[in-house]
């Protein structure tokens, strides 16, 4: 199972990348300890000239469908969701997908 989180931005959307990388994602990793294969954070920083309708796209692959279900049921999910307001006012969008059949 792959959870992809998109953070869309308009002009003046607030996004604290430093906090995201240093605190929020480590918090998610610790809550979902043992359930994740990998986390990839893709940053699009206007200050670096990387223009995109998204400020950040984060891809999290879980070890299995069961692991994903377990992760979503974790009681600390609320804590994780509350933390979002600390670093952004973006209306994030999350999609759950699977690896394409043709990929190895």
């Amino acid at each position: 199972m792959i959870l992809t989180i998109f953070y869309p931005v308009e002009q003046m959307t607030r996004f604290d990348e430093d906090y995201y990388v240093r605190t929020h994602i480590p918090m998610a990793k610790s809550i979902w300890d043992g359930l994740l294969d990998y986390v990839e954070m893709i940053s699009f920083s206007p200050a670096e000239g990387q223009m995109s309708p998204y400020r950040m796209i984060t891809v999290m692959r879980f070890t299995s469908a069961d692991a994903f279900a377990q992760a979503m049921a974790d009681p600390r999910m609320a804590e994780l969701q509350q933390d979002v307001a600390v670093f952004t006012d973006s209306q994030l969008v999350a999609h759950v997908g699977a690896r394409a059949a043709a990929s190895d």
């Binding site: 003046m12 607030r14 600390v86």
Partner: peptide, 19 residues
């Protein structure tokens, strides 16, 4: 300084990458 920003809840006031 990161600790100060967290401790006093200053981050949400900021828009980063903003010139």
């Amino acid at each position: 300084l990161n600790h100060v920003a967290d401790r006093f809840d200053l981050r949400p006031h900021y828009r980063f990458s903003t010139t």
